[in-house]
Design a protein around this nucleic acid. Structure first.
Length: 602
RNA sequence: GGUUCGGUAGCUCAGUUGGAUAGAGCAUCAGCCUUCUAAGCUGAGGGUCAUUGGUUCGAAUCCAAUCCGGAUCACCA
């Protein structure tokens, strides 16, 4: 149990013993002591002052004495300033913690529980390659899944691939008309980029057609519908739905190219999935749901045959769930898929990583699921994230300002290479080690940059600043890790041993002799478990990013001020090597939760 | 217009179960490499926490109103 939890419980016990009343965690507040005051943890007494009608000083003294009397192994002393009771943690307790866990690579992770969670993320369209915004989605989804695993959940990563629809037909039409049989192989183009080009070409040609029609006096709206290319795309969609062989073949061929391209990108950025759903399989789902909803009176049929749900009493609008031609719409398919997910996996919670432009849609989805009484409806959770913008504003495909994922990844890795070479510290690296290192640093910088911000906020991606490897960045944390490894390597000949002389059982001289920075490091490490928990509760990897950075920063201060391998005495040396080792473990673990590798050397 | 999410240092962001003098990084300035990796460390300057009012011992944090910005409100997905 963490010190914080021990303190809370101990305080409740002390209060109960002292005042003969029952208390809960909400009756008082515990926080970390501000650096300018002596102590490590602080109990804020004001709320108790009120209910117990005692002065803060008296109250603080009584609680402080009681805590120390009963928990002398954890709390050594206290002071009271105004209404704040500042408690000091004993060195003994911290050393004990260090001794028990210094070599535990799983430190901070929670026991397996029996809850199952599905995290759906990524969800690409097969008509164009993924861009910077998708990267935020991929990194978030992957990281959240790992964070949940670290908290003991059984996690299934899933992905819905939007592989059908009018947008797919557009690139197919363009390819048929313009490609002359060109393929990714023949043009040496990555498959997803290849198909994406034809999607762009379609829109270019389509635009020309509209302009011509408008010039002939057709209204813009009509022109958009009547343009021959659009008509062809519509026809192709119908052909696809009726299973016309040549259309299906073309569709399979082009999607195949896209998947090959995606596979390369996913492999590189580290996205993976346990289950893939294809919209071409799920788009008919939801028919039975519509029937069910009608029977239950949740849905209503209009005169023209279309089916609706009225959500006005919930503050939303009316929403269509089935078209008058009997086909199901997006939202209905999603409900169908939600149901299928539950039936297949018996999940306790279903998380959707989707941009905040779909907040309304997801709200409706959940509401309909609840009204239909689907078993997992209440545990549908939309992990909404803000758009990624450029310093110049939003990315717009029309203006060609969309940042391609492959390009930006490549650029980050190239910058990592250039920067590393300038520093000139890697002369003894082998060729393949260098390639790995650049990839580790470049991708690490990228992931850290996109994950360090609260998901729900939109963020600005400044290509120049993102490539800064100093300060609150992935490479800084990676560097700290490599630095520790370097120290630990140097003492390899005398590997870390559990030297009883620094252990509390022995009551040797180190006790009550920890330096402030040593203490701060151990206390920070101790909070890793809570940090993981918080990140899981909030579904927010930035919690981890901030924590890991803070730990790395503290370590670097320590490293600069105090020698580790050449400490004043053997006990101190052992102690510091233990701290270093544990810091490295926690940094590595935290970075892995964000999908970031740490290099042994850099 | 309705709903909803944001507004914290020049820039990018932390901090909201109400707590002590609001924190980092970047940028600027001043120091620190014969010593465990200087992708580092130490220090300085920089703030009307959008505005106004309310709640109370205490508000960046809670409530109300206003201003600014984003998203959304399709028989598209």
């Amino acid at each position: 149990m963490s010190i914080l939890n021990v303190l809370k419980e101990a305080t409740i016990q002390s209060l109960t013993a002292l005042y003969d009343k029952s208390f809960t965690e909400t009756d008082f507040q515990v926080s970390q002591t501000k650096p300018e005051f002596e102590g490590n943890y602080t109990i804020v007494l004001f709320s108790l002052v009120k209910s117990l009608k005692k002065s803060p000083e008296a109250l603080g003294k009584e609680i402080g004495d009681e805590l120390i009397k009963n928990h002398s192994h954890i709390f050594s002393k206290y002071n009271i300033i105004k209404g704040f009771l500042n408690l000091t943690i004993t060195d003994t307790h911290l050393l004990d913690l260090l001794n028990k866990n210094y070599n535990d690579v799983c430190f901070g992770k929670h026991e397996i529980n029996d809850q199952k969670i599905m995290v759906e993320y990524s969800s690409p369209n097969t008509n164009k390659p993924i861009h910077l915004g998708h990267l935020r989605n991929n990194f978030l989804g992957w990281s959240v899944a790992e964070i949940l695993k670290a908290n003991g959940y059984e996690v299934t990563k899933s992905c819905i691939i939007n592989d059908r629809g009018i947008h797919i037909c557009k690139s197919m039409i363009a390819w048929q008309k313009l490609a002359n049989g060109a393929t990714p192989q023949s043009t040496k183009t990555k498959g997803d980029h290849f198909v994406g080009e034809y999607y762009v070409k379609f829109n270019d040609e389509y635009k020309k057609e509209i302009e011509e029609l408008v010039a002939q006096g057709v209204s813009k709206e009509d022109a958009e519908k009547k343009a021959p290319l659009m008509q062809e795309a519509q026809t192709m969609l119908l052909d696809w739905e009726s299973g016309k062989p040549e259309v299906i073949d073309l569709w399979k061929k082009m999607n195949g190219w896209v998947y090959e391209g995606f596979a390369v990108t996913y492999d590189r950025i580290g996205s993976d999935f346990d289950e893939k759903y294809y919209e071409s399989n799920t788009y008919l789902l939801g028919k039975d749901i519509v029937k069910e909803g009608l029977a239950k009176g949740v849905f209503e049929k209009e005169e023209d045959g279309s089916i609706w749900i009225d959500l006005t009493t919930d503050g939303l609008d009316k929403k269509i769930v089935q078209r008058r031609d009997g086909t199901s719409v997006y939202i209905t398919q999603d409900i169908g898929l939600a149901k299928q997910k539950y039936e297949e996996y018996k999940i306790d919670k279903s998380i959707y990583v989707i941009g905040d432009e779909q907040n309304y849609h997801m709200k409706v989805l959940k509401l309909i699921a609840e009204k239909l009484d689907l078993p997992n409806a209440k545990n549908i959770h939309h992990l909404s994230y803000g758009m990624v913008e450029l310093p110049s504003g939003k990315m717009k495909s029309r203006e060609g300002t969309v940042v391609d994922a492959d390009d930006i990844v490549e650029e980050m890795i190239a910058t990592a290479k250039q920067h590393t070479e300038e520093l000139g510290k890697v002369k003894d690296f082998e060729e393949h080690e260098l390639a790995d290192l650049y990839e580790t640093i470049g991708l690490g910088a990228m992931k850290f940059y996109l994950l360090r911000v609260d998901p729900k906020k939109r963020m600005i991606f400044n290509p120049e600043e993102s490539i800064d490897f100093h300060g609150f960045t992935g490479p800084f944390v990676q560097y700290t890790y490599a630095r520790i490894q370097s120290v630990l390597r140097k003492v390899d000949s005398s590997p870390l041993t559990v030297d009883s002389s620094i252990l509390p059982h022995n009551q040797q001289p180190i006790t009550d002799n920890l330096l402030p920075l040593e203490k701060e490091l151990i206390l920070t490490i101790e909070q890793y478990s809570q940090t993981i928990e918080q990140a899981a509760t909030e579904l927010n990897p930035s919690v981890i990013a901030n924590y890991v950075f803070d730990l790395a920063k503290t370590f670097n201060s320590f490293y600069t001020e105090h020698s580790i391998a050449n400490a004043e005495c053997e006990e101190k040396r052992q102690l510091r090597l233990h701290i270093a080792s544990m810091t490295a473990n926690v940094i590595k673990s935290g970075m892995q939760l964000m999908g970031i590798q740490v290099p042994e050397r850099m």
